[in-house]
Write a protein that binds this DNA or RNA. Sequence first.
DNA 1: ACCTTTTTTTAGTTTTGTCTAAAAATATAA
DNA 2: TTATATTTTTAGACAAAACTAAAAAAAGGT
Lengths: 217, 217
Amino acid sequence: MTLSEENYLKAIYHLEQLSGSGVSTNALAEEMQTKASSATDMVKKLADKQMLIHVPYQGATLSDAGRSHAVKVIRKHRLWETFLVEKLNFKWDEVHDVAEQLEHIKSEKLIDELDRFLEFPKYDPHGDPIPDKNGKFNTIEKITLTQALENKSYRCIGVKDDSSQFLKYLDSNQIGLGTSFEVVHKEPFDQSVKIKLKDKELVVSQSVAKNLFLETL
Amino acid sequence: MTLSEENYLKAIYHLEQLSGSGVSTNALAEEMQTKASSATDMVKKLADKQMLIHVPYQGATLSDAGRSHAVKVIRKHRLWETFLVEKLNFKWDEVHDVAEQLEHIKSEKLIDELDRFLEFPKYDPHGDPIPDKNGKFNTIEKITLTQALENKSYRCIGVKDDSSQFLKYLDSNQIGLGTSFEVVHKEPFDQSVKIKLKDKELVVSQSVAKNLFLETL
DNA sequence: ACCTTTTTTTAGTTTTGTCTAAAAATATAA
DNA sequence: TTATATTTTTAGACAAAACTAAAAAAAGGT
């Protein structure tokens, strides 16, 4: 698998998870920041390699081999992110681009030893679960802040958007993984949410609320 | 710099060190396991990018920018090799191929933090010096076992050949970095060398002797 | 100096992954 | 259902980095 093929597999896996079904050429091109014709070309190549099933004009669905390979890349990405934060003093908003490069390094021993070195972490710095050597990983039910109820308490356990911009916003408002707060008010007009956090009140917009994963306390 | 360009720069740097002068197209093609025409193409490209000076039919010489970039890649390679051996349980004969991939990861913070994490090592697992952030590194005078004198004692401080085959040969004969021994006899007929190592005598061929770096005891 | 051999360069192709432009298939809507 | 819009695919081109084959330059030997 080339670097480009792996990136497409990861994108298709991601879109399948979101929609629960096959992935359209346009959606894939959008995700990959490229043109539909390029996406078609790559989908055909991955179909040749038995990584997915492609019905022309009806999108692509990963095969077991394709899904398994995508999960391996995701495992590598999340382990490297964990390494960067735990051992190399990276902040959670600095790891993404470097991990995008490191996830393509080919060496099974490398990744399994890294896993051991990090003591088999279950979650990465953004709260995403890390697949184990066999591709298994936890999927706990998480809600977003948009779905939370007034006057209940929650703990932040993940982020949907891991862009540097969003993570820096959270940092500057003292929200991180493990942060607990109470939902004070949900504003129907603009879907903003007022929360009480360490005795301070904070209003976050809908764009923020929909990207915060919570567990009920 | 692309992956391929970096690999050529590294090869040119290596050959310049060996010969002390400019690098011929044929030598470069040989080092890169490719054809002379491919080497010419790349040399022209690197000349365009001001990484080297190319006089047609007279070989290539690295510019300061080219040498500096080559040293950066070497720094990364040797730091990653050190990481693999020190932290991830790799043997010294297992690191080369993985480090060849890792040396191309682009992130200054990554490599400087890795350096700190490893506590600023001065030598890699094969005894080669690791350039610091500014590209400076130790160059101690080392001799090879072929140059050693009878009835004198030496310590192994490096290897010229870091192929898995050679390193496994050394392992199986209990020779590693730091191993000390005495030269018992140099055989003029075939340049083989008899050494006394931990009270056992061992004869090594010329091919082995010329790839072992020593310091005098 | 001349011929031969070796080295280096040039010219033209290939493969991978991208692009644009246009054609074909599907979906939507009057 | 028929026209329009959207989505997807095809066709043809391009850049990077490799190749083969052939031409050009340099080096060596007599």
